[in-house]
Design a protein around this nucleic acid. Sequence first.
DNA 1: AATCTAAGGATCGTTGAACAATTCGACAAG
DNA 2: CTTGTCGAATTGTTCAACGATCCTTAGATT
Lengths: 228, 228
Amino acid sequence: MVAALEHERVRLGRSSTAERVADILREHIIEGLFAPGQRLSEEAIGNALGVSRNTLREAFRLLGHERLLDHKLNRGVFVRVLSAADVADLYQMRRVLEGAAVRRTASPEALALIKETVEEAERSALADRWQDVGTANSRFHQALVALHRSPRLNEAMRQLLAELRLVFHVMSNPRALHEPFVERNRQLLELLAAGRADEAGTFLESYLDDAERLLLHAYEPLDASGTR
Amino acid sequence: MVAALEHERVRLGRSSTAERVADILREHIIEGLFAPGQRLSEEAIGNALGVSRNTLREAFRLLGHERLLDHKLNRGVFVRVLSAADVADLYQMRRVLEGAAVRRTASPEALALIKETVEEAERSALADRWQDVGTANSRFHQALVALHRSPRLNEAMRQLLAELRLVFHVMSNPRALHEPFVERNRQLLELLAAGRADEAGTFLESYLDDAERLLLHAYEPLDASGTR
DNA sequence: AATCTAAGGATCGTTGAACAATTCGACAAG
DNA sequence: CTTGTCGAATTGTTCAACGATCCTTAGATT
């Protein structure tokens, strides 16, 4: 009977000030409250959150490893600015992770989760809440990768989508970005539900090609010098 | 002509004490000098390396994110001990990353790199250096994933293989682990060189299935309670 | 006027010390 | 044998300090 407690065990290890700080900052970045390229001063943020520089630096380190922050020696941390090459690479990775996922057989529960995200996107689209459509769309693709039932692949996809958020926030027109894919999400869902794995794979390929093209076309990181 | 320097640019940002400490510790872990499950005392290692606790903790945080160290609140950091489920998950991920890789068309340079690792494994096998065979084998699979030409996928594979090293080091017989795959590496190379992508994919699938089975069969994390 | 150089200020990198919080083992009490 | 309590050891977090590095700006040079 104690065996049921095994699952709770993960909760015990969780919670240190640095991790909670990282959670807060991650939220701010993903929500776009910190603009890409913006510098995060150790002193300013440390004071604002009431934590010491050391603890804050541990949090920065965490987010740097997630590629949300860019750590430049002796210059500080900056909210990451993605280059066009980064965007292309993210889509390259999506093709691998998602492409293999949709070719798997989907369990009813997994399918139900996917369906839920599709409907959420449709509802948000009808209400003209395009930011929420973007969120639902992220959850849709996360649910696709969840078909692998692999914790590590799920985590990799989570990070990937968080990075992509950095791009969305510098775009002017969220509607143009998300609207075309609401319907395609449903179409993909139906292919999956019908067990037509190969067709789903092919469909997803052109889906991602179009999404990448759309994004890259509208995304011109203003400085041409690559990284900065 | 200055363009060739662009690639060196990443090195400029490199170098902070914490990162160098992390490099040293990572090396030790991958080489098996720190046994899985072993606790790494902040004081002991800090003194040994001559760095302060704060700096060392930053290094620990870095390696924790790479899943090489396990950070337990108020208890310290431990060299990660992989469960059987972890091993299975790692192979699940390999199937996705490597499976998609071998189905791509290989450039001559990429093929040459793969060939090099195959021959290195063969040389080491003839010399009975099975540890080196394992290293060459890792490089082989890393080279496979490099067919994607994706920095992020390369990085993910690098981390994955580092994690797998944690398993190899608790195994008694490295020869039994690596020997069967020296020849299969060459066979896979030849399928790739011949451009027979689909056959390479099928071949790799059974390759990974066998490798996982072999590993899981010989790997019994002594305590049954999972994480510890 | 444009370019190079040098000084100054701001911020980061790292250290060492300090104290609170937590864990773990030993020992005593029931 | 189980439970409660104490104390040593270790981690979590903060703080202050100093050197190192970068950016800016003002001045000197051409």
